[in-house]
Design a protein around this nucleic acid. Structure first.
Lengths: 136, 136
DNA sequence: TATGCTGTTATATATAACTATAACACTAAT
DNA sequence: ATTAGTGTTATAGTTATATATAACAGCATA
């Protein structure tokens, strides 16, 4: 119900990232409507302008199209566009920093895999719905 | 000379992180003075209050001690304190998100290692000095 | 004592992020 | 035509981040 926000990124960017994750994971497919601005705002207890700002990023990236009065919809080719773009961005901007940290802390593959495996346990009745933005 | 700032984190936190990296890497050892607030401010072309704020974080974390009129110095035990704390923080807060992204993008170990290997090439005369905060 | 380093405090200003509240515009269905 | 759902715009206020400028306080040394 009440997801938490990471203080290392503005909320609107985290929202954008969550939708991106849903597209990559196939939870949102081409032509699908995004959960509505006001629904998300209510569910996450966030201002609807903040949600809109996150969604507008997706529009600017050509991933999503807005149809006034109807909703916002995943564009054709969105997933492929993302696979290219996000890969490049991650490898160039995020991974080097993360890799350096791993080296610096002397973390081993086993510890990393253990930590990744136990990162979340979903409560039994928390089956994901298409109408809500999902936590990663 | 003129390092760049990552727009995904406030400057003062990036400064804090760079000093932490220098401690972990052994560039700054216990008892060593930190590069002075005003020097760093000048070199990075940043307000000295921003640098001070980053340094104050380190004081709050017991990693550094401030001696008015003399400078700021790495505390005894700072590196060990960091090794515990940063490991825990990284594995709990950052790595799960990063790991999920790697899975989502279908990145393979080889690609990751390649990207990490080519992440920086130091110009020949850019030997790190103790008196400057280093880029990771 | 005077100079030149340190860290620190005080004001004031600008911008980004987020919020609350209200209103507007368009679409679909009753 | 009305209603209820979409996205969108407008105003205004708060907090965090970063800036510029000035001044204060402590230490070391010439």
């Amino acid at each position: 119900m009440d997801r938490e926000w990471n203080d290392s990124q503005p909320i609107y960017r985290q929202l954008r990232d969550r939708v991106v994750a849903m597209i990559l994971d196939g939870v949102l497919k081409e032509g699908d409507p995004l959960p509505s601005v006001r629904n998300v705002a209510a569910e996450y207890r966030v201002n609807h302008l903040t949600v809109l700002k996150g969604y507008q990023q997706l529009v600017d990236e050509q991933l999503v199209e807005s149809k006034r009065g109807r909703g916002m919809f995943i564009n054709a080719g969105a997933r492929n566009l993302l696979l290219r773009g996000e890969r490049k961005k991650f490898l160039a901007e995020e991974w080097p920093r993360v890799y350096a940290t791993i080296q610096r802390l002397g973390l081993k593959a086993e510890e990393l895999l253990d930590a990744a495996a136990t990162r979340r346990r979903s409560p039994p009745d928390a089956a994901p719905t298409k109408t809500e933005v999902q936590e990663r």
